[in-house]
Structures are given as structure tokens and as C-alpha cells.
Design a protein around this nucleic acid. Structure first.
Length: 879
RNA sequence: GGACGUAUAGCUCAGUUGGUUAGAGCACUACGUUGACAUCGUAGGGGUCAGCGGUUCGAGUCCGUUUACGUCCACCA
């Protein structure tokens, strides 16, 4: 027999169980079992270069609760872990840690080794392959640290099912997905103005764009009209004046009707631009007339596309003004020499500096009537400006060649897919619908970065060595994954790379979401193992947070629809955010992030999990260490109550696992089981609705009541010296109820319940001995407990005991103080019920048996009884 | 501007299809070491259920409206 410890030391015990679970493969997935017996979690792959905070612990606990419940229901759990390691965050960290910069034109240096360097050391340029190797070193370290934390938290992940979004398998799936999207006509490449981050020098997608409120200025600028007259335009972006291609006003705007069809002359640059009607011009805003520049915003892009006007691109990929020649090409001017002189003042400047300079130029400029085109001092305002979510400078529209996935024409189909999925909580589906309805661009999936999945594409070159983008050469699916920078396209030799009549590689990598949108296919081995794919796809649950519904959830639904015509999972479960005590979202930029390490140490993993388990899905929750303390206290209570139950049984040599429901024979015990069965049903129903918090609440409430009341009432019988039916029933009830509570708590408190389970309930040392593969309690399990003939006899006993205790508290006496006279008034029916429990009550309440009086009568409304307990004059020596 | 959510005790939160006197924990107060538990127990005080209006025999719950807070989307002249 295993020795039961006096004290629970959570650090040691939790470490012990982590090792045991690992050694026994308690959480491993069995690929042989069929789909209907399997439950699949599409685990969110955390960005490894970020640091984990308490919010991650919160949401990953939620999925683990659901996984553990399903496992105890007998399901074969496929609960993998992925790491999102490609993309910008890793690149940034690698650049800083190793002081390197990727230069994709350098050859690979096999001798080069990545070394961490101080911030003051010079930056070294390395090849793309060397750079990626360095990324691999960093992500491997990060992944190990993350895995350690997840194990500390007790996540029941199958650690054999791991993937990293940059690994070979994921690259293969991502490239295969791309090729199929090309084949099915969903992916296309086009040279077009695209939202562009000038610092990262990459295109970005609509989903990665956010508005930030920034100070700016209105500038009122007078334009001349070709054959006389003028008008004033209000703009916040005067630096785009040289890129002005048209001037527009609303077609119904009376003020400008007479100007439509004429040309305006831009100040400083003398460019003749058409004055045109346009629906998007709002007469209420500014002066009602505005300039269209290539490109100031999405409306400019849209207008330019429809108008077929020439493009005047003045902002380059680095965010500085490009050198252009006025009087040549599309940069027309009435006075090219003066225009060029003015532009020379701006060329090479960044956007902010160009803005400042052009205001000075406008102020100094004189129109024919001698006035300045800048008709007033710039007026300050706060306005929303679009930023890349990871960027520091406003986005610009730059014309580049990019790969896109068609979304706009499929909005209705994608909305319908969202409706086939059950969202928890349900209102989160609205966010998905809103996002799909609000889409205004196709999905740009190409990024001008290095650490990511390359496009498996090359382009033939013409006699001049220029790439022909209209004839892309795609890699063969069997050859995936490929890096076109080092692999040669079919039918070419490496010597033809970059040569006339040769080929060039597509230099770009995919958006990180292009890979992470495939997590279900990555896990199911889509296209590689059809049997496994059929067995795992669609999945059961996708846990995630709500701010990435528009990215991760949305793109995953897109990919599943394109590739399989299916939804990727049946349920999406959304965790809320952790708010700091001021109810602000915890985020790195705000600097209010709380890391979980010390909390797990102090409050135990079970305590921290308890805190997370109390929060319902989707509800933002304030960080509260007090709740973790409550969780730890619950563990202690469970520990002590279990020791008591086991000691009671073993005092008389009973085997705790040998009791069955038919041995519950005493009326009070049978009545207790009416309650316990209700609790089991509530827990099960709640879990089936993914409402783990309600399951915990019901279990916890019942457990405390069990400790406070039943354990007190039962002592007379369980401590009894005589081996009779009453005692056997008490022991059976203790054994069965403890076994029940341990399993009900197991998803929430996996360490503590496993510890206690291992004392006496575990049937073996291996996987089968774990409480986490034991079956979750059902009410059917206790069907063989006979119904009591005295309904409420347990409740009656409890109520009288509570009132006796209350009398002692009021009398400022200890709970062991004897009661000399007890009068109980109630209905005959309730008194009869009470009499069944009376011996237990009298013993627990230290009532002298000869001092009890019953009266038939009406107690206060809501009560079963009115109780008068007279405290004894003094403590007898025996007490 | 559009959408969604939240508002219940000092704090963190429950409150089911409308149904007795609105609950729990923390904190607070008092009492008590009792044969599982001082990492404790027992008991107590504490609420105009954000405001207003409506439906109903009856509203924390349903409807309308207002306010505050949060989030997402739109908004760059």
C-alpha cells in the first residue's frame, strides 16, 4: 500500500506527475482508432519569438479542459502542438541577437556560424540560407522554453504531434496549397498598387492593417483652373501634390459643376490635371473638392483603376520620394523646368520631411495674382492613419507585383461556411460575418521577406534578361518543398539563372497566415496521407482568441473551402482576454504584461488552472491572484478530505475500490446520492456545451457542501466500532463519492487529482492507472443506489445541524460544546425524515439524546424546521 | 458612423425556459483549535441588479430607450 503523505508539496508532486505522464504516454493519440472515437484540437501555434504571458496560460487551459473531458469520455485525443516561427517577429529577433542582415544575393557560406553579439557590434550581411539557419537556432530555443511552460501548466498535449510552421512538412503543405490555389484559379499575381510598409519593405494584407489616430494638418491649397478661375483644396498630404493625377468633386456638388471637364493646374508643378466628378467625394468634408494622387489612400487606388489615368508613382519602397523627370513620361507640366526645380527640393526625402519642405515651397510660391497657393496656415487635426500592425510608419501604396488569393467574389460562399460552424460563444460568429462583409481587397499572400515559405515559382527571362511574369513556371508537387533560389526549374540548368533566355526565381516568401491557415491540413497530412487526412479532417475544435477571427479563423476557413469544400472544424471556441486590474488589455506595448512562471510556482499549476477555469468562454477577465489562492485552497481541501476518507476506510481494513452502489443502504446516504447525481448531470451537460466553468462551479459547490455537512454527519457511523450495515453504507458512500469528486475535478486540477487517485484508486502504474483516462462520472454509474423512502432526510439532518452550529456560534461557544435541550418544530413528514438522520445529527451536534423534543407545527417560510438548541451549563469532563 | 459585448455586494463573478426573501468566493466582523483540514472551521453584516419607460398576476431575467466601459469594422480631402 502506498503511503499517504501528510502534506502536499505542489512543486515536487507536479514535477513528478509531469514526468510520469510523459513516461507513460498518457496523452498519446492512437492513429488506429476511427474518426467517431477521435476528438481533434486544432491547437493555436504560438508565435515563438514573443514571450508567453498569463493570457496564453488562460486560453490554453480552456482548450485543455475540453480535451481532458473528451479524453475521460473515452475519446482518442489528437491534441498536437505547433510553433509559429516564421515571419517578421523571428527575423527581427535574429537580426538583433546575431547582428546580421539578410542579403539574398549572397551565396551560402557553409562555414558561417551564428553567434550572439552585443548591440554595438557591426551588422554582418549573410545569405538567405545562413539567415534561415540562424532563425532555426533561435526558434529551437524558444520552442524548448515554451514546451517547458506548457508542461508545467499540465496541458495534456501529445508531444509527439509537434510541428513548426517553417519545418519541411509545413513548407511542403503550404507550397502544395499554393499550387492547388493556382490550379483552381484562386491564386493570381498582378502588378498593382498595394499597401506597403516602408520599414519592413513588404506588402501587407488588409487583415494586418490597423488604424491609429495620429496628429496631422489640414492644408488649404489654391489650384488654378486652365482657362481662368481657381478653387481651394483641403489636404492632409501636400507632399503628394507632384503625384496628383486628377481633381474630383461630387457629381451633384453645385459649387463645382462648371469645372467638370476642364483642367486644373497644380501649384509648384504646373501639371494639367482633369477635373472630374466622383461619387466618393463628400461635399461635407473639407472644401468638397479633392485631389487624386497616386497614391494617397484606397479611394485614390480605386479611382485610378477606373479612370485609366496614368500613374505618377513618387513614393518608393523605402518611403522616400523617387527621382522623377517633369516634362517626361506621365509627369506632364506647363513649366517643366520650374517643376523640376521644385521637385529637386523633395526628391530623396522621407514622407514627413517632404511634407514639411513642400509647405515651405507653397508658402513661398506666388500665383499670377501675387498670392500664395497656401491660402492659410496649416490647421492641426487628429485623424486615423493606416499602419501595418507591427509597423512604425504609416503605410503607403506602392506598385509592386504580388500574389493574391481571390476573396471578394466569394464573400457569400465564405459567409455560408461560417454559418456551418458552431461558435462559442455564439455572438463571435457575428464578428466573422462582419469581417467577410467588409472585405475590400483580395488576400495578398506574398511578402518581400526572407524567413518564410518561398513561392515554388520561377519566371522565364527574355532575350534581354527581363522576367516574363505572364509565364510562371511552377514546381512539380512531388518536388516540394523547394526553394527556387537554389533549386532549378524543370527543363533548365542552374547556369541559366538570371541569364537572358534563362530563368529567375520568385524572390518572395508567403505571408505567415498562408501557412498557419493550414494548421488542420498540416496535422492531417493533407495530400500526403489520405487515410490520416480523412480521419482527422474536419476537426472538432479550434480554440483561439477573438482578435484573430479576421485572420487565423477566417483564412483557415478560406483554405478549407478552397481545398476541400468543407469547414475546417465543427466548433470554434473563443477565449477572452486577460485584463489588468485597471481593466486594460494585457499587452506588450502597454507594458502591463504578467508572466506566468512565478504564479505557477507560488499558487501551483492547479491553482492557476482553477483561476482560468472560472472564466467563461469569450469573457474578458480581470487578472486576480486571489482566485488562484482559492484554487490552491480547494486543492488542500481535496487533499485533506481524501486522506480522511481513506483513513476511515482503512481503519477497519476496507478496500476503497471494492465498494459498489448497491452497498449504499442507509437512507441518508441514498438521499445524498440524489444530490450527487444531479451534480454529475450538470457537469456533463455543461461540458457538452463547452461550458467548463459551469461544470467546475457545480462540482466545487457540491464538494464543499459534502465536506461541511456529509463528512460531519457520517462520523458517528464511520467511526463506529461495530461492523454493521449502517457503517458499511457510510464507508461505501465515502468511497464512491470521493472517487466521483476526483474524476469531476480531474480536468481542472490534473495534478492534485492524479496524486490522490494514485494512492488507492489507480489500477496500475501505467497509462491505465491515470485518473485522466478514467471515465468521467455519469449518473448511470449510480443508478443502482436505491431511492430513499424518506425524501429530504439528508437535507433535514443538514438543516438541523447547521442550526445547532449557529446556536453555538451565537452563544460564543466551541462547536464541541454540548446541547442539553433540543426542540425541533416542523411538519410531521419532515420530522419523520429527520428521525432517519437523527442519530448522526445528535452525534455531530453533541446533543444529549435524552433532551430532544419534537413538535408538529409550521416553521418559518423557506425552512424545514424551527430549532431551539439550549447550550449545556458547562462542559462535561468527557468533552 | 455601423456592429457586437459588458454593467448584479468594497473586489472577482454566478444567476437556467420570467416565479418565494437575488447567490458564491475574496475582503470585512465575531466566535471557535473539533478525532481530515489554521493552507482551517462556524456564523454574521453588506445589494434601488447602471438609469428611464413598457409587457406581465409577477421582471436581475423579456421588449424599447438612455448612459458608461470594452472590442471589432468603417472613416486619411
Amino acid at each position: 500500500m502506498k503511503e499517504i503523505p501528510d502534506k502536499y508539496k505542489h512543486k515536487e508532486q507536479e514535477a513528478k506527475w509531469r514526468e510520469t505522464w510523459k513516461a507513460n504516454g498518457v496523452f498519446s493519440w492512437d492513429p488506429a482508432r476511427p474518426r467517431e472515437e477521435t476528438f481533434i484540437v486544432d491547437t493555436p501555434p504560438p508565435t515563438v519569438s514573443g514571450s508567453l504571458h498569463i493570457g496564453h496560460v488562460f486560453s490554453y487551459t480552456h482548450q485543455d479542459l475540453l480535451a481532458r473531458y473528451q479524453r475521460m469520455k473515452g475519446k482518442n485525443l489528437c491534441y498536437p502542438m505547433g510553433w509559429d516561427d516564421n515571419g517578421l517577429p523571428t527575423e527581427r529577433r535574429v537580426q538583433n541577437l546575431f547582428r546580421i542582415q539578410c542579403n539574398p544575393h549572397l551565396p551560402y557560406d557553409p562555414e558561417w556560424k551564428a553567434e550572439k553579439k552585443g548591440a554595438k557590434q557591426p551588422v554582418q550581411e549573410v545569405s538567405r540560407r545562413n539567415f534561415i539557419e540562424a532563425c532555426g537556432i533561435v526558434t529551437a530555443e524558444d520552442e524548448a522554453a515554451f514546451e517547458g511552460l506548457w508542461r508545467s501548466l499540465g496541458l495534456s498535449i501529445d508531444w509527439d504531434l509537434q510541428y513548426a510552421t517553417i519545418d519541411e512538412h509545413c513548407r511542403k503543405i503550404s507550397q502544395a496549397s499554393f499550387l492547388e490555389m493556382v490550379e483552381k484559379g484562386y491564386a493570381y499575381s498582378i502588378e498593382a498598387p498595394t499597401m506597403w510598409d516602408v520599414d519592413f519593405q513588404t506588402a501587407v494584407a488588409q487583415a494586418e492593417v490597423e488604424d491609429r489616430s495620429r496628429p496631422g494638418h489640414f492644408h488649404d491649397i489654391r489650384f488654378q483652373v486652365e482657362d481662368g478661375g481657381d478653387f481651394i483644396i483641403t489636404t492632409t498630404r501636400p507632399e503628394l501634390l507632384p503625384a496628383c493625377i486628377a481633381v474630383v468633386a461630387h457629381p451633384d456638388d453645385a459649387r463645382y459643376q462648371s469645372l467638370f471637364g476642364k483642367n486644373a493646374i497644380t501649384p509648384l508643378f504646373g501639371a494639367k490635371v482633369p477635373i472630374m466628378p466622383a461619387e466618393h467625394a463628400d461635399p461635407e468634408k473639407g472644401s468638397g473638392i479633392l485631389m487624386v494622387c497616386t497614391f494617397g489612400d484606397a479611394a485614390d487606388v480605386e479611382f485610378w483603376k477606373q479612370s485609366k489615368l496614368p500613374i505618377k508613382q513618387i513614393i518608393g519602397r523605402t518611403g522616400t520620394l523617387l527621382p522623377v523627370e517633369f516634362g517626361q513620361g506621365d509627369f506632364n507640366s506647363e513649366n517643366p523646368k520650374q517643376a523640376q526645380k521644385n521637385y529637386q527640393e523633395l526628391a530623396g526625402l522621407g514622407v514627413a520631411k517632404a511634407k514639411k519642405r513642400i509647405v515651405e515651397l507653397l508658402a513661398a510660391e506666388r500665383l499670377v495674382d501675387g498670392s500664395s497657393p497656401l491660402v492659410s496656415e496649416p490647421r492641426p487635426l487628429e485623424h486615423p492613419v493606416k499602419f501595418y500592425e507591427k509597423g512604425d510608419r504609416p503605410l503607403e501604396f506602392v506598385t509592386t507585383r504580388q500574389w493574391f488569393v481571390r476573396l471578394l467574389e466569394h464573400r457569400d460562399a465564405l459567409k455560408a461556411q461560417g454559418q456551418k460552424i458552431t461558435w462559442h460563444p455564439a455572438h463571435m460568429q457575428t464578428r466573422y460575418q462582419n469581417w467577410v462583409e467588409g472585405l475590400n481587397q483580395d488576400w495578398c499572400i506574398s511578402r518581400q521577406r526572407y524567413f518564410g515559405v518561398p513561392f515554388p515559382v520561377w519566371y522565364p527571362t527574355d532575350a534581354q534578361g527581363e522576367a516574363d511574369f505572364s509565364q510562371p513556371i511552377f514546381a512539380d508537387v512531388a518536388s516540394l518543398p523547394v526553394d527556387p533560389m537554389s533549386a532549378t526549374p524543370p527543363g533548365y540548368s542552374e547556369g541559366q539563372r538570371g541569364q537572358p533566355n534563362g530563368f529567375v526565381a520568385d524572390p518572395d516568401v508567403m505571408d505567415t497566415w498562408a501557412t498557419s491557415s493550414l494548421t488542420p491540413q498540416i496535422i492531417s497530412h493533407w495530400g500526403l496521407d489520405e487515410k490520416r487526412h480523412q480521419n482527422l479532417f474536419p476537426m472538432d475544435i479550434r480554440p483561439q482568441s477573438h482578435e484573430i477571427i479576421r485572420t487565423w479563423a477566417f483564412y483557415t476557413i478560406v483554405k478549407a473551402w478552397i481545398h476541400s469544400g468543407e469547414i475546417p472544424w465543427n466548433h470554434v471556441v473563443i477565449s477572452g482576454w486577460i485584463l489588468d486590474p485597471d481593466r486594460k488589455k494585457m499587452s506588450k506595448s502597454v507594458g502591463n504584461v504578467i508572466t506566468p512562471g512565478h504564479l505557477l510556482e507560488e499558487h501551483s499549476a492547479d491553482g492557476v488552472r482553477y483561476w482560468a477555469s472560472r472564466a467563461r468562454l469569450g469573457a474578458d477577465t480581470a487578472f486576480d491572484e486571489g482566485v488562484m489562492k482559492v484554487g490552491k485552497r480547494l486543492c488542500t481541501k481535496l487533499f485533506n478530505a481524501s486522506r480522511f476518507v481513506i483513513s476511515q476506510l482503512e481503519r477497519v481494513g476496507a478496500d476503497i475500490s471494492a465498494f459498489g452502489p448497491e452497498q449504499v443502504t442507509t437512507e441518508v446516504d441514498r438521499d445524498l446520492f440524489v444530490r450527487l447525481k444531479k451534480t454529475v448531470v450538470t457537469a456533463e451537460k455543461s461540458f457538452e456545451k463547452f461550458d467548463y466553468a459551469a461544470a467546475l462551479e457545480a462540482t466545487e459547490k457540491e464538494f464543499w457542501a459534502f465536506c461541511d455537512d456529509y463528512l460531519e454527519l457520517v462520523k458517528r457511523r464511520s467511526y463506529g466500532e461495530e461492523d454493521n450495515e449502517d457503517r458499511r453504507s457510510a464507508l461505501a458512500t465515502l468511497a464512491l463519492s470521493l472517487k466521483m469528486f476526483l474524476r469531476l475535478f480531474a480536468p481542472f486540477l490534473p495534478f492534485m487529482t492524479e496524486e490522490i487517485w494514485s494512492w488507492r484508486f489507480a489500477k496500475s502504474e501505467g497509462k491505465e492507472g491515470s485518473v485522466h483516462v478514467a471515465s468521467f462520472p455519469t449518473s448511470a454509474e449510480y443508478a443502482a443506489v436505491a431511492e430513499t423512502k424518506y425524501t429530504n432526510c439528508y437535507a433535514a439532518g443538514v438543516e438541523v445541524l447547521v442550526k445547532i452550529r449557529s446556536a453555538k456560534t451565537e452563544g460564543k461557544k466551541s462547536l464541541r460544546w454540548p446541547i442539553s435541550q433540543l426542540t425541533v418544530r416542523g411538519s410531521q413528514e419532515n420530522l419523520d425524515a429527520l428521525k432517519v438522520a437523527l442519530d448522526d445529527v445528535l452525534e455531530a451536534g453533541c446533543v444529549q439524546p435524552d433532551g430532544v423534543t419534537f413538535e408538529v407545527g409550521e416553521p418559518k417560510e423557506g425552512d424545514l424546521f424551527e430549532v431551539v438548541a439550549v447550550l449545556a451549563e458547562e462542559v462535561p469532563a468527557s468533552a
